[in-house]
Nucleic acid binder design. Structure first.
Lengths: 121, 121
DNA sequence: TAAACATTTGAACAATTATTCATATGTTTA
DNA sequence: TAAACATATGAATAATTGTTCAAATGTTTA
């Protein structure tokens, strides 16, 4: 209580480089874009989803295929797919009892491959 | 208990496309690479770290500058920087009392910019 | 050398998240 | 139309994570 050193205190020490700080703040990403950018990375930030996406990069697959490939339960895969769906990263089509999922965002593959360069450097 | 439907059960239903599944499994990312790839994305998957990285893309900055820019406490920024440091995404140099941080991985900027395309499409 | 400063660190806490389990929904087949 | 199948969904749980707070470390200055 009573002390919030981060804004308009009586003394305002800190901030070593006021100009630099002001300039960076001026061109800073708007909050919503920072959130959105973090969100797409967060979505890619899970090993199971990584394997799902890698699998889908080879072509469309249904849920039980993905479960087998990623060695996860179908329920777990389904939850992951829902997340990917709500972010429009995958789409699906029904064929009889099966739902075939496929990638629906060309940026995903580019991000994925760019990330792989980092991993395999 | 007693039922684990995911492997070598008595009946082995599911797996709609055995060939497809086998082929994808054959070329699947090794577990360690999937983990590493997820890790780099997870690291980028936080709005505060996104703003820290964006700021550092403009040049080196010290911790209190970053705190001011991201409107976070210095402690919080420091924790984030530690994470980025342990993953070798940033480096720092000391100048008197200040530690100046800067980016230390050329992939990060490329990933960042590729992600921005997705956000601004 | 004591005080001020810049940053780090660890513990604590709340929030988020991945997985599991049980159940529901929709489709095909016998 | 009942049973089998493929998938989705919600609740529950355990694990992870971001932030805060208090205290420690290392540097400069008075």
């Amino acid at each position: 209580m009573e002390n919030d050193r981060h804004r308009e205190d009586f003394c305002e020490v800190h901030q070593v480089h006021e100009e630099k700080v002001a300039e960076v703040k001026r061109i800073m990403l708007p909050e919503e874009k920072a959130q959105a950018l973090a969100q797409i990375f967060k979505t890619l930030g899970d090993p199971t989803r990584i394997r799902i996406i890698f699998a889908l990069m080879q072509g469309e697959l249904c849920v039980c295929d993905l479960a087998e490939i990623t060695d996860s339960s179908e329920s777990s895969v389904s939850h992951h797919l829902r997340l990917l769906r709500t972010q429009k990263l995958v789409k699906y089509r029904r064929e009889g009892k099966n739902l075939f999922y496929s990638l629906d965002d060309h940026h995903v593959e580019k991000l994925f491959k760019e990330g792989l360069k980092h991993v395999y450097e």
